[in-house]
Design a protein around this nucleic acid. Sequence first.
DNA 1: CACCGAATACGTCAAATGTAGTATATCCCT
DNA 2: AGGGATATACTACATTTGACGTATTCGGTG
Lengths: 217, 217
Amino acid sequence: MIKVAVAEDNALLAKSIQEKLGFFPDDIRYKFRGINGKDLIQKLEADSNIDVILMDIQMPEMNGIEATSIISQNYPHIKIIMLTVLDDENHIFQAIRAGANGYILKDEPPQKLLSGIKEILGGGAPMSAGVALKALRLMRNPIQEGEEENSQESFSLSKRETEVLQQLSKGFDYKQIAEFLHISPATVRKHIENTYSKLQVHNKMEAVQKANKHRLI
Amino acid sequence: MIKVAVAEDNALLAKSIQEKLGFFPDDIRYKFRGINGKDLIQKLEADSNIDVILMDIQMPEMNGIEATSIISQNYPHIKIIMLTVLDDENHIFQAIRAGANGYILKDEPPQKLLSGIKEILGGGAPMSAGVALKALRLMRNPIQEGEEENSQESFSLSKRETEVLQQLSKGFDYKQIAEFLHISPATVRKHIENTYSKLQVHNKMEAVQKANKHRLI
DNA sequence: CACCGAATACGTCAAATGTAGTATATCCCT
DNA sequence: AGGGATATACTACATTTGACGTATTCGGTG
C-alpha cells in the first residue's frame, strides 16, 4: 500500500484528486490533504509516514515550490510529484531545483497518476509528455544562475583566513595546514575559529560549504 | 506502424534488440541496423523514412553521441532513444545535449522498450529509473565547464552511506544525523568510516569533497 | 603618534571525530 | 542453503576540533 498525501487549496480539485486515487484501493492509501504548503507541513509533523505527496504549485500562505523545498530537506524519504496546471519552464525548473522528482499535469487520467506514483517510488521521474520535453530543453540550455546574487553579505574574510579555509577544504588537519603555511597549529585554529563568527557557522564543514557557496574560496 | 532503426556494433546485442522489437509485430516495423554511427547515417541517406532510432553509445568509427548530434540536425523528425549500458551522468548529459529524447538501459524488458518508443512519439522523454534521477540531478547541479569526467571509478557507496554524507555536508554532527535518520550515532559513525575506505580518504571533509566532485551526493 | 585590524602564538577543557575491534539481522543472489 | 553486501549497534582509546581566554607583533591610517 502506497501512502499518499495531497496539497491543494481548491476544495473541488482536491476532491477530484482524491477520487482519482480512489480508483485504486488496492494500491493507494489516501492519508490527508493540506489546504496549502504550511498546512501540509503541519500535518506532516504529526504524521510523516507518507510515501508520496501530490503537490499543487499555486497555493496561498505557502506555495508548492517552497513547501517542496522544505519537505525534501526534512523528509528525504518522501517523494514529491508536482500536480499542477502550470507547465512553463520556469515553474518546472524551480520545482525540480526544490527537490520534486515528478511533474504531472492535472488533466492526466487516473491510470497515468497511478503509474507516475509507482514510477517515482521505483526511482524514476514521471513527467507528462510536454513537461519532459521542456525539462530536456532546460538541460540543453541551462539557465544561467548567479545573475541576481543579492549578496550584500561580504563576510570579509582576511587573506590568511581564506588560505586556511582552502587547505581545510582539501581535508588537511590543523597540523598539516600549519606546516604548509609555516605557522603554528594554534594559529591555524584561531584563524578558523575567527571565520566561524564571520560566516555564522560552528564547524569546519559548514564554514567550507558556505565559503564555497559564496565563492570565497 | 512505428518504423524503427538500430545502431549497434555488437552483432549479438543487435540481434537481441531486434528480437525484443519482434515481440510487437502489430506496432513496430524494424527497418535496418547500422554497425556504427557512420554506417547508420549512410543507410539513412538511402532511406530516412524512420520514426525512431535506438542508438548505442559505444561504437567504433563514430559513436552514438556524434551520430545523434548529426542526425537530430539533419533529420529533425526522427526521435532518438539512447539504448546503452552506460548510465553515468556525463554520457546522459552529452546524449541529451546531442539531441536524444530518451535514454533506456539495455537490460529493460521488451514491454518497457515498446512503451518508451510510444512515449517518445507522444512527445515524452522515456528514461530508465536510475537515468531519470541522474538527469534531474544534472538539472539541479549543472556540470561546470572544464569539469573532467574521468570517472570510471564507481566507489559504489550504499544508499545509507550516501544519505549520511549528504547530511554531513550540511555541517551536522553525528548525533544530529543519527536523530534525523532514526539510527544510533555509533551507526552513523560506522557508515562514515566505511565510506573512508571506499573513497580512499581519512576524514569527513575529504569524503564530502570527493563525493561531491564525483557527484555521489 | 596612536589606534586598529590582521597575524601570530599559547593554554585549557569539553566535545566531536578517527580507528579498531566485535556482533547481529536482513536482504539478495547464487 | 550459503555467501556477500548492507544496516544496525556497541566498546575502547587516541586524536582532533570547538569554544573561550590572553597576549605580542606588525602594517597601515587617521
